[in-house]
Computed example of a mutant assay.
Amino acid sequence: MTFTVNCSILLTELPLLERPAAARAAGFDAVEFWWPFVSSVPGDAEVTRFERAITDAGVQLTGLNFNAGDMPGGDRGLVSWPGREAEFRDNADVVAGIGGRLGCTLFNALYGNRQDGHTPEFQDNLAVENLAAAAAAVGRIGGTVLLEPVSNAPYYPLRRAADALDVIGRVQRETGAGNVRLLADFYHLAVNGDDVDAVIEAHAADFGHIQIADAPGRGAPGTGNLPLERWIGRSRELGYAGRVGLEYTAAGESAFDWARRQPDWHVR
């Protein structure tokens, strides 16, 4: 199947560890998660419970975020956050361990907000170092680090595809890390005013991952006015061969009605 269900934003009526089974019951065979633990280095028992929820449900974990901090409180990643370097790198080892055991190879590293008391240049230099370290950690299992523009986060500096691609290019030039790629979230790009068609034409073959939600509202496909079917189809024509992450908000009972009504559009 083309899609992977983001169980951190969908099926939230259920406890976290029940969501993989619910995704399977809804007809999906793959899931992805934001960081599902409170701490960057959770205990072994916590990790085991999470992994068993995936395997017992019979779904594939296709994507996992590095710890991004207190997301409800406004944090948006540790990659460029001075003073949390050791924590981020310890987290990268845990992420790679989970990925290795579950066969997951895509790992989203949110860049982080601008921090008072530090220049953008200092934070950007730190981000290059941390992304290279993360790339090395997941590279041991054949993994890829994803970098994502984000909307509705005023202190997050990566707004458009070009912002993320500039960082990715710098990481590759300065460190040689070739496994950092763009996460093209069509919702975030569109809301931020990016030219999504142009991004697809120029970079689709090199996308590390695609995620979707409709706009306005960040709802399911068909609830807004974004041409998601066309964007996915064109990305595939240009070489994107990965899954598409469903990262929208919707009530559990109706979250996937659109896919049942239009079962073919996402695989063309």
Results as ranks from 00 to 15, higher is better:
residue 110 L to G: 01
residue 94 V to D: 00
residue 266 H to W: 15
residue 43 G to V: 04
residue 264 D to V: 08
residue 183 L to E: 05
residue 220 A to H: 01
residue 183 L to V: 05
residue 161 A to N: 05
residue 118 H to Y: 15
residue 222 G to F: 03
residue 256 F to T: 09
residue 249 T to S: 03
residue 64 L to C: 12
residue 159 R to K: 15
residue 250 A to R: 04
residue 253 E to V: 01
residue 176 G to S: 08
residue 34 W to N: 15
residue 261 R to W: 00
residue 59 V to Q: 06
residue 129 E to I: 11
residue 217 G to L: 03
residue 185 D to L: 01
residue 141 I to G: 02
residue 62 T to N: 14
residue 132 A to H: 14
residue 48 T to M: 09
residue 103 G to F: 08
residue 76 R to T: 05
residue 117 G to L: 08
residue 213 A to G: 08
residue 131 L to S: 05
residue 117 G to N: 09
residue 153 A to W: 00
residue 227 P to A: 13
residue 115 Q to T: 05
residue 212 I to L: 02
residue 188 H to N: 10
residue 117 G to P: 10
residue 37 F to H: 11
residue 170 R to T: 15
residue 228 L to P: 11
residue 214 D to Q: 11
residue 26 A to Q: 12
residue 195 D to L: 02
residue 123 Q to K: 11
residue 161 A to L: 10
residue 213 A to I: 03
residue 178 G to W: 00
residue 257 D to S: 13
residue 5 V to D: 04
residue 182 L to Q: 11
residue 178 G to Q: 09
residue 202 A to S: 14
residue 91 N to G: 14
residue 135 A to M: 05
residue 46 E to M: 10
residue 248 Y to I: 00
residue 173 R to K: 15
residue 232 I to P: 00
residue 228 L to C: 07
residue 199 V to A: 11
residue 230 R to F: 10
